[in-house]
Amino acid sequence: MDHPQTPRILAPHLNAFQHRIVRILGKVVQLRGETAIIDAGGHVDVILNRDSHLAVGHAVEVIGKVDQNLHVKVQASTDFGTNIDFNAANAVVEATHRYKAIFYDEQ
């Protein structure tokens, strides 16, 4: 019922967001059963859950927790199709961290 803030990040931010729940929009590069690699300003290893239905080449938005190995344990994923402007999406991530007052609280 409770929905925590999920700051939008890219691969370079993973380290700064360890043990936090984040939102990452990236392109699915490779599927390997229980895990997958998505490209979001760099490769990100994601650990899938039962409900994740990722498609290679599609954009996907995952919500998940960053673990100590900087892998993202997926809690939810949304297919964003094949027509995503990643320049705009990456600009949102930049705005998120530059103007965080309207996006997320420090922990």
């Binding site: 199709g81 995503i84 705009a88 999406a89 600009a91 949102v92 705005a95 998120t96 103007y99 309207i102």
Partner: peptide, 18 residues
Amino acid sequence: EDMNEVSYHLLEATSVHL
């Protein structure tokens, strides 16, 4: 319908805030 609207909206909100 077009998921780019999500990015668009967040950028527009940032722009108005600024």
